[in-house]
């Protein structure tokens, strides 16, 4: 096994946080839990007043989520929801939405 592949696999295992192998679609599945409000694949209904997430910069999404989690950024509900996900899960979610064009 090439070192790079091994590293990638180890990274994946760390992300899953369990002894079992992570589902390759874990990021997609986690991101879909946000779609009720933020639209299928992050494409929110225009004019409905909720933030679309598709194609946003990953670092910006992560910073916003971190600020919700810490309470730095005031929110009606996102401070309560962000705390329900691990940092690894939020990283996967942000990466998934950033990749949506």
């Amino acid at each position: 096994m090439k070192p790079l592949t091994l590293a990638a696999l180890l990274g994946l295992a760390a992300v899953a946080g369990t002894a079992q192998a992570a589902d390759p679609n874990l990021a997609r599945n986690l991101a879909a839990t946000c779609a009720n409000c933020h639209g299928t694949n992050g494409r929110a209904v225009e004019g409905a007043g909720l933030d679309p997430l598709a194609g946003l910069d990953k670092a910006k999404i992560l910073q916003k989520l971190a600020d919700f989690k810490s309470g730095v950024k005031p929110a009606t509900i996102m401070h309560q929801i962000a705390k329900g996900y691990t940092d690894e899960q939020l990283d996967l979610i942000a990466g998934y939405y950033a990749a949506q064009k």
Partner: peptide, 17 residues
């Protein structure tokens, strides 16, 4: 009232989802 607007936005988005 902020969440009054969000609630209607939630409905539009989940119906679309």
């Amino acid at each position: 009232e902020v969440e009054g607007k969000v609630a209607l936005g939630w409905a539009k988005n989940i119906w679309a989802d």
